[in-house]
Protein backbone atom coordinates (compact mmCIF):
# COMPACT_ATOMS: atom_id res chain seq x y z
CA UNK A 1 0.00 0.00 0.00
CA UNK A 2 2.67 2.43 0.94
CA UNK A 3 6.20 2.18 -0.27
CA UNK A 4 9.68 2.11 1.12
CA UNK A 5 12.23 4.78 0.24
CA UNK A 6 15.91 4.00 0.06
CA UNK A 7 18.36 6.85 -0.33
CA UNK A 8 22.02 6.33 -1.02
CA UNK A 9 24.87 8.80 -1.38
CA UNK A 10 22.66 11.78 -2.07
CA UNK A 11 24.12 15.27 -2.57
CA UNK A 12 21.95 18.32 -3.25
CA UNK A 13 23.16 21.61 -4.70
CA UNK A 14 21.88 25.15 -5.12
CA UNK A 15 24.02 26.31 -8.04
CA UNK A 16 27.57 25.68 -6.87
CA UNK A 17 26.61 25.56 -3.19
CA UNK A 18 26.33 22.06 -1.79
CA UNK A 19 23.42 22.05 0.66
CA UNK A 20 23.52 18.41 1.75
CA UNK A 21 26.17 15.76 1.37
CA UNK A 22 26.21 12.00 1.20
CA UNK A 23 22.87 11.24 2.78
CA UNK A 24 21.90 7.58 2.92
CA UNK A 25 18.89 6.19 4.76
CA UNK A 26 15.94 3.86 4.55
CA UNK A 27 12.45 5.15 5.22
CA UNK A 28 10.04 2.37 6.12
CA UNK A 29 6.49 2.18 4.81
CA UNK A 30 3.49 2.67 7.11
CA UNK A 31 5.52 4.57 9.64
CA UNK A 32 6.37 8.15 10.48
CA UNK A 33 9.95 9.28 10.03
CA UNK A 34 10.94 12.63 11.52
CA UNK A 35 13.85 14.85 10.44
CA UNK A 36 15.18 17.14 13.13
CA UNK A 37 18.15 19.49 13.29
CA UNK A 38 19.09 23.15 13.56
CA UNK A 39 17.99 25.72 10.95
CA UNK A 40 19.88 25.55 7.68
CA UNK A 41 21.02 21.97 8.19
CA UNK A 42 19.39 20.87 4.94
CA UNK A 43 16.56 18.74 6.31
CA UNK A 44 13.91 20.61 4.26
CA UNK A 45 16.17 20.48 1.21
CA UNK A 46 16.55 16.76 1.65
CA UNK A 47 12.79 16.33 2.03
CA UNK A 48 12.27 18.16 -1.25
CA UNK A 49 14.71 15.86 -3.06
CA UNK A 50 12.44 12.91 -2.18
CA UNK A 51 9.68 14.08 -4.55
CA UNK A 52 11.91 16.05 -6.93
CA UNK A 53 10.56 19.40 -5.76
CA UNK A 54 14.14 20.49 -5.10
CA UNK A 55 14.84 20.97 -8.79
CA UNK A 56 11.94 23.43 -9.13
CA UNK A 57 14.32 26.09 -7.84
CA UNK A 58 16.48 27.42 -10.70
CA UNK A 59 20.02 26.10 -10.56
CA UNK A 60 19.20 23.37 -8.03
CA UNK A 61 20.29 19.80 -8.76
CA UNK A 62 20.76 16.44 -7.11
CA UNK A 63 23.33 13.65 -7.30
CA UNK A 64 22.82 10.18 -5.89
CA UNK A 65 20.02 7.67 -5.75
CA UNK A 66 16.50 7.68 -4.32
CA UNK A 67 14.71 4.34 -4.71
CA UNK A 68 10.96 3.98 -4.25
CA UNK A 69 10.41 0.25 -3.70
CA UNK A 70 13.55 -0.30 -5.76
CA UNK A 71 12.79 2.13 -8.59
CA UNK A 72 15.17 5.03 -9.04
CA UNK A 73 13.28 8.34 -8.92
CA UNK A 74 16.17 10.08 -10.66
CA UNK A 75 16.49 7.59 -13.52
CA UNK A 76 16.65 9.43 -16.86
CA UNK A 77 13.32 8.01 -18.05
CA UNK A 78 11.43 9.07 -14.94
CA UNK A 79 9.56 12.36 -15.12
CA UNK A 80 9.44 14.57 -12.04
CA UNK A 81 5.74 15.12 -12.64
CA UNK A 82 4.94 11.42 -12.14
CA UNK A 83 7.19 11.25 -9.08
CA UNK A 84 5.29 14.10 -7.44
CA UNK A 85 2.01 12.43 -8.31
CA UNK A 86 3.10 9.43 -6.20
CA UNK A 87 4.78 11.34 -3.40
CA UNK A 88 2.53 14.04 -2.01
CA UNK A 89 3.67 17.06 -0.08
CA UNK A 90 2.32 19.35 2.61
CA UNK A 91 4.04 22.68 3.09
CA UNK A 92 5.07 24.83 5.99
CA UNK A 93 2.36 27.43 5.39
CA UNK A 94 -1.11 26.25 4.41
CA UNK A 95 -1.45 26.99 0.70
CA UNK A 96 -4.93 26.23 -0.61
CA UNK A 97 -5.59 27.71 -4.05
CA UNK A 98 -7.15 31.09 -3.25
CA UNK A 99 -9.44 31.18 -6.27
CA UNK A 100 -10.89 27.71 -5.66
CA UNK A 101 -13.62 26.45 -3.35
CA UNK A 102 -12.96 23.81 -0.69
CA UNK A 103 -14.33 21.15 -3.03
CA UNK A 104 -12.25 22.35 -5.99
CA UNK A 105 -9.12 22.43 -3.86
CA UNK A 106 -9.48 18.78 -2.91
CA UNK A 107 -10.36 17.82 -6.48
CA UNK A 108 -7.54 19.90 -8.01
CA UNK A 109 -5.04 17.05 -8.23
CA UNK A 110 -7.65 14.51 -9.33
CA UNK A 111 -8.56 16.51 -12.39
CA UNK A 112 -5.00 16.23 -13.69
CA UNK A 113 -5.16 12.48 -14.09
CA UNK A 114 -7.98 11.97 -16.51
CA UNK A 115 -11.70 12.51 -16.27
CA UNK A 116 -13.67 11.10 -13.38
CA UNK A 117 -17.42 11.13 -13.16
CA UNK A 118 -19.07 13.64 -10.89
CA UNK A 119 -20.09 10.93 -8.43
CA UNK A 120 -16.61 9.39 -8.37
CA UNK A 121 -15.10 12.80 -7.69
CA UNK A 122 -17.69 13.50 -5.00
CA UNK A 123 -16.79 10.23 -3.34
CA UNK A 124 -13.06 10.85 -3.37
CA UNK A 125 -13.48 14.41 -2.11
CA UNK A 126 -15.60 13.17 0.77
CA UNK A 127 -13.18 10.35 1.59
CA UNK A 128 -10.19 12.67 1.48
CA UNK A 129 -11.84 15.27 3.68
CA UNK A 130 -12.87 12.51 6.11
CA UNK A 131 -9.34 11.16 5.94
CA UNK A 132 -8.05 14.61 6.85
CA UNK A 133 -10.52 14.91 9.79
CA UNK A 134 -12.10 17.92 8.12
CA UNK A 135 -15.33 16.55 6.67
CA UNK A 136 -17.60 17.39 9.59
CA UNK A 137 -16.38 20.95 9.73
CA UNK A 138 -16.81 21.77 6.04
CA UNK A 139 -19.45 19.42 4.63
CA UNK A 140 -22.04 22.21 4.59
CA UNK A 141 -19.85 24.73 2.82
CA UNK A 142 -17.92 22.79 0.21
CA UNK A 143 -18.45 25.57 -2.34
CA UNK A 144 -17.04 28.31 -0.13
CA UNK A 145 -13.46 29.50 -0.79
CA UNK A 146 -10.77 27.43 0.85
CA UNK A 147 -9.01 30.60 1.94
CA UNK A 148 -11.90 31.36 4.31
CA UNK A 149 -10.98 28.52 6.68
CA UNK A 150 -8.84 28.90 9.79
CA UNK A 151 -5.11 28.19 9.52
CA UNK A 152 -5.42 24.71 11.02
CA UNK A 153 -8.39 23.87 8.82
CA UNK A 154 -6.51 25.15 5.75
CA UNK A 155 -3.60 22.87 6.56
CA UNK A 156 -5.93 19.88 6.89
CA UNK A 157 -7.50 20.94 3.59
CA UNK A 158 -4.02 20.80 2.06
CA UNK A 159 -3.55 17.32 3.52
CA UNK A 160 -6.91 16.29 2.05
CA UNK A 161 -5.81 17.70 -1.30
CA UNK A 162 -2.55 15.73 -1.10
CA UNK A 163 -4.18 12.38 -0.18
CA UNK A 164 -6.96 12.79 -2.74
CA UNK A 165 -4.58 11.65 -5.50
CA UNK A 166 -3.74 8.50 -3.48
CA UNK A 167 -0.01 8.97 -3.13
CA UNK A 168 2.32 6.30 -1.78
CA UNK A 169 4.25 8.69 0.42
CA UNK A 170 3.33 11.91 2.23
CA UNK A 171 6.06 14.47 2.84
CA UNK A 172 5.36 17.16 5.43
CA UNK A 173 7.62 20.18 5.69
CA UNK A 174 7.10 21.65 9.18
CA UNK A 175 3.32 21.37 8.73
CA UNK A 176 2.51 22.81 12.16
CA UNK A 177 4.98 25.66 12.43
CA UNK A 178 2.38 28.26 11.40
CA UNK A 179 -0.39 26.79 13.58
CA UNK A 180 -1.66 27.24 17.13
CA UNK A 181 -1.29 24.37 19.67
CA UNK A 182 -4.85 23.08 19.24
CA UNK A 183 -4.57 22.93 15.45
CA UNK A 184 -1.15 21.32 15.89
CA UNK A 185 -2.69 18.62 18.03
CA UNK A 186 -5.36 18.00 15.38
CA UNK A 187 -2.67 17.54 12.71
CA UNK A 188 -0.66 15.22 14.95
CA UNK A 189 -3.75 13.06 15.57
CA UNK A 190 -4.32 13.00 11.85
CA UNK A 191 -0.76 11.88 11.18
CA UNK A 192 -1.13 8.99 13.61
CA UNK A 193 -4.22 7.91 11.70
CA UNK A 194 -2.68 8.36 8.24
CA UNK A 195 0.36 6.23 8.98
CA UNK A 196 -1.78 3.09 8.61
CA UNK A 197 -1.92 3.84 4.91
CA UNK A 198 1.04 6.00 3.99
CA UNK A 199 4.73 6.34 4.38
CA UNK A 200 5.01 9.66 6.21
CA UNK A 201 8.07 11.86 6.46
CA UNK A 202 7.93 15.00 8.56
CA UNK A 203 10.42 17.80 9.03
CA UNK A 204 9.99 19.52 12.37
CA UNK A 205 11.70 22.06 14.56
CA UNK A 206 9.72 20.86 17.50
CA UNK A 207 11.47 18.04 19.31
CA UNK A 208 8.45 17.16 21.43
CA UNK A 209 6.51 16.77 18.22
CA UNK A 210 9.12 14.44 16.79
CA UNK A 211 9.09 12.42 20.01
CA UNK A 212 5.29 12.29 20.10
CA UNK A 213 4.49 11.29 16.54
CA UNK A 214 7.44 9.58 14.89
CA UNK A 215 8.64 6.00 14.84
CA UNK A 216 12.11 6.79 13.59
CA UNK A 217 14.09 10.01 13.72
CA UNK A 218 17.01 11.32 11.69
CA UNK A 219 19.19 14.08 13.11
CA UNK A 220 20.73 16.46 10.55
CA UNK A 221 23.56 18.82 11.31
CA UNK A 222 26.28 20.78 9.55
CA UNK A 223 29.86 21.24 10.57
CA UNK A 224 29.67 25.03 10.25
CA UNK A 225 27.77 27.68 8.30
CA UNK A 226 28.34 27.29 4.56
CA UNK A 227 29.28 23.63 4.85
CA UNK A 228 26.82 21.02 3.57
CA UNK A 229 24.40 19.36 5.98
CA UNK A 230 24.72 15.66 6.83
CA UNK A 231 22.80 12.97 8.66
CA UNK A 232 24.51 12.57 12.01
CA UNK A 233 22.36 9.80 13.36
CA UNK A 234 19.20 7.90 12.56
CA UNK A 235 17.43 5.48 14.86
CA UNK A 236 14.22 4.42 16.57
CA UNK A 237 12.74 7.59 18.01
CA UNK A 238 12.50 6.10 21.50
CA UNK A 239 16.19 5.17 21.51
CA UNK A 240 17.25 8.44 19.89
CA UNK A 241 15.62 10.56 22.56
CA UNK A 242 16.73 8.44 25.52
CA UNK A 243 20.09 7.12 24.47
CA UNK A 244 21.60 8.83 21.42
CA UNK A 245 24.87 7.41 20.20
CA UNK A 246 26.33 10.74 19.08
CA UNK A 247 27.34 13.60 21.35
CA UNK A 248 25.95 16.23 18.92
CA UNK A 249 22.54 14.56 18.90
CA UNK A 250 22.42 14.57 22.66
CA UNK A 251 23.47 18.21 22.80
CA UNK A 252 20.78 19.17 20.32
CA UNK A 253 18.02 17.16 21.96
CA UNK A 254 18.83 18.46 25.39
CA UNK A 255 18.79 21.98 24.06
CA UNK A 256 22.47 22.82 24.32
CA UNK A 257 22.44 24.27 20.78
CA UNK A 258 20.25 24.84 17.73
Amino acid sequence: MSKQIQVSGLDAYYGSHKAIEDVSMTIEPRSITAFIGPSGCGKSTFLRTLNRMHEVIPGARVEGKVLLDGEDLYAPTVEPVSVRRMIGMVFQRPNPFPTMSIYENVAAGLKLNGRLSKSETDGIVEDSLKGANLWNEVKDRLNKPGAGLSGGQQQRLCIARAIAVRPEVLLMDEPCSALDPISTLAIEDLMAKLKDQYTIVIVTHNMQQAARVSDRTAFFNLAEQGKPGKVIEMDETSRMFTNPSQKATEDYITGRFG
Binding site: M1, L68, D69, E71, L73, V78, E79, V81, S82, V83, R85, M86, L112, N113, G114, S119, E120, D122, G123, I124, V125, E126, D127, G131, R166, Q197
Partner: peptide
Protein backbone atom coordinates in the same frame (compact mmCIF):
# COMPACT_ATOMS: atom_id res chain seq x y z
CA UNK B 1 -22.24 11.40 -2.17
CA UNK B 2 -21.25 7.84 -2.94
CA UNK B 3 -18.17 6.69 -1.21
CA UNK B 4 -15.48 4.97 -3.25
CA UNK B 5 -13.59 2.46 -1.16
CA UNK B 6 -10.04 3.70 -0.96
CA UNK B 7 -8.65 0.17 -0.90
CA UNK B 8 -9.85 -0.82 -4.36
CA UNK B 9 -8.46 2.17 -6.13
CA UNK B 10 -5.17 1.78 -4.36
CA UNK B 11 -4.90 -1.90 -5.28
CA UNK B 12 -5.27 -0.92 -8.93
CA UNK B 13 -2.68 1.78 -8.69
CA UNK B 14 -0.20 -0.52 -7.04
CA UNK B 15 0.10 -2.94 -9.92
CA UNK B 16 2.11 -0.50 -11.96
CA UNK B 17 5.15 1.32 -10.69
CA UNK B 18 6.07 4.91 -11.55
CA UNK B 19 3.81 5.72 -14.47
CA UNK B 20 4.55 8.07 -17.28
CA UNK B 21 2.18 10.98 -17.56
CA UNK B 22 -0.41 10.53 -20.24
CA UNK B 23 0.52 11.47 -23.76
CA UNK B 24 -2.26 14.03 -24.00
CA UNK B 25 -1.00 15.88 -20.90
CA UNK B 26 2.51 15.84 -22.26
Amino acid sequence: MTSTPIKEVREDGRKTSIQHISTSRR
